[in-house]
């Protein structure tokens, strides 16, 4: 099957896409990459001075990246920069001129790149061009991602301009495209909907609320925690949840917990909790143990 590749070049950003087709396009006015049908892969290089960062992904990854970067720049140009995320990509402002891009790539875990405004411009130019060349990008056949016990989760939690935006962490089983779309919609809904007042939760006593949060956290983690076969010791985290039970942050409290956070349901969370904590937020000690056991206790 013929292979097609193309490189999009900007001063600080190079995007190479490739894939296979059974019907090469012969019309010279149509970009050849539009004929890609399967096996899509891309590599993005972001350069700064002598150093560069390489990111890689499939069609869904690139589609997520295009979505978040276009949406983010749109918010910049409307005068109200807002962090945003979709599936495997997230971006947020660091200050008025720099930005933090976070992506999940395959089994390698999370990669983070800080972009200047000119780097963001170059990245957007490449992404906009590839989106125009391959309008069916998001519907290309997905590649099979092999993981020893789970699919990578989406980028599901980040802090946006001081407003905590949280989504559920775990999508640990193999997702269908429909399920992923539902997840993405849910995540985006949480991003664009103004923060729900925490006081809107049904009134209950503090002790009862704490207990509910604890048991919900325990249930959620119990469903998701699958201990790696070689785990010998407990991984201990200080986990922060908001009043609705959504996970806000997970700070490792032992070295092993730091090293192996990527293999836990807490992998996508920021490590530092928001300061100050949102009203009603609680912190718990979570111990993830061998044999899929776990323990959640009040801090």
């Amino acid at each position: 099957m013929p292979s097609i590749s193309h490189t999009y070049q900007q001063p600080t950003s190079t995007l190479t896409v490739q894939g296979e087709t059974s019907n090469p396009i012969e019309d010279s006015t149509t970009p050849p990459v539009r004929a890609i049908q399967r096996g899509f892969e891309c590599q993005l290089e972001i350069r700064q001075g002598e150093t560069s960062k390489i990111l890689r992904g499939d069609s869904v990854w690139l589609s997520d990246l295009i979505t978040v970067v276009e949406r983010y720049v749109g918010s910049q140009l409307q005068g109200e920069p807002k962090g945003t995320f979709s599936g495997k990509a997230a971006i947020r402002p660091l200050d008025f001129i720099s930005h933090r891009l976070t992506v999940r790539q395959g089994e390698e875990g999370i990669a983070q790149v800080d972009l200047s405004m000119t780097q963001l411009y170059d990245l957007l130019e490449n992404l906009t061009q590839v989106a125009a060349d391959i309008p069916h990008l998001s519907s290309l056949k997905r590649q099979v991602v092999r993981a020893w016990y789970r699919q990578p989760a989406g980028i599901a939690a980040l802090l946006v301009g001081g407003i905590v935006v949280v989504a559920g962490v775990g999508v640990w089983v193999t997702r269908t495209p429909e399920a992923e779309e539902q997840l993405t919609n849910r995540v985006q809904e949480q991003l664009t909907t103004p923060a729900q007042p925490l006081t809107a939760a049904p009134p209950q006593t503090t002790d009862q609320a704490d207990l509910d949060l604890l048991s919900r956290l325990q249930e959620q983690l119990a469903e998701q925690w699958q201990s790696p076969p070689d785990l010998q010791e407990s991984l201990i985290y200080q986990v922060t949840v908001d009043a609705t039970g959504s996970l806000l942050a997970a700070q490792p409290t032992n070295v092993l917990a730091q090293e192996r956070i990527g293999q836990t349901p807490l992998a996508d969370l920021p490590q530092l909790p928001p300061d100050p904590l949102p009203e009603g937020a609680q912190q718990f000690r979570v111990s993830l143990e061998p044999d899929n056991r776990l323990e959640v206790t009040q801090e």
């Binding site: 140009l77 005068g79 008025f96 405004m117 000119t118 411009y121 957007l124 130019e125 906009t128």
Partner: peptide, 12 residues
């Protein structure tokens, strides 16, 4: 400075 940044994106 914000106008300068915007102009960069509009120069595309």
């Amino acid at each position: 400075l914000r106008i300068l940044i915007e102009l960069m994106f509009y120069s595309s």
